[in-house]
Nucleic acid binder design. Sequence first.
DNA 1: GTAGATGCAAAGTATTTGCGACAAG
DNA 2: CTTGTCGCAAATACTTTGCATCTAC
Lengths: 136, 136
Amino acid sequence: MSETIEQKCISKGVKLTEQRKIIAKVMSTSDDHPDVDELYNRVSKIDAKISIATVYRTVKLFEEAGILAKHEFKGGKARYEEISESHHDHLIDVKTGEIIEFVDDEIEKLQKKVADKYGYDLVDHKLELYGVKKKS
Amino acid sequence: MSETIEQKCISKGVKLTEQRKIIAKVMSTSDDHPDVDELYNRVSKIDAKISIATVYRTVKLFEEAGILAKHEFKGGKARYEEISESHHDHLIDVKTGEIIEFVDDEIEKLQKKVADKYGYDLVDHKLELYGVKKKS
DNA sequence: GTAGATGCAAAGTATTTGCGACAAG
DNA sequence: CTTGTCGCAAATACTTTGCATCTAC
């Protein structure tokens, strides 16, 4: 782990409040992809007075600062995860909802190539695979 | 063009009402990816009495019947397009909102390979590229 | 004729915002 | 100090739903 979310806030000039520290801590220690409601639940266990509005405001702020990544997988609610050095995409088990992170350099390269072909520079991309476990 | 939406409804046993015919017609003649609001606007020009609830119900029905594809690009509203024989993905211009459809067989193959590697059969996938036009 | 579709308005979700009180730098 | 944040509740945006009426088959 290179830099904590708190450190990122400092280096990006994001003011650190008590609430933000707690949200940062919870996201740092979560290795899944919680939605705002779930994040709010976890945060509430540490400080029950934090409001869900603050959680919404904070994840948005962190997202804009490039600290958190927002995902809109199928099924409504937005989900968040900490941005790490290594980019990855997601494979979602449609039966269980389990999410597997994966990296495939070849696909990454091909994406750039496609964008290039149409005269674009890639600024972002989203790749989600939805699958079911094989019987075998 | 192989089969109209109306024909697909018949072959899939979807009851064809006056409203559904109009929605089908509008989607058939749209070559963009309208959201429900926009679709409702277009439909209203043909029959002003159709309610937005019907539009919502119909796109959902058509989606479940495999006639329309639902996309949740960045920015809230779901957008729809007719499913055609040839699968494609989307390159979105983040400045203008323009959407370019593309096909890349190699990426498709690699996706299957990734799913396979984790022991999954791919049932669906989503690939969106977000880019800005090159200055060149 | 009957099951299913429609229109309307009301209800749900997920998320954002106005505002007075409060806290970080 | 002063600017920006917080908590609360009200507001918004998108989508779904209950119910009485109507329509396709």
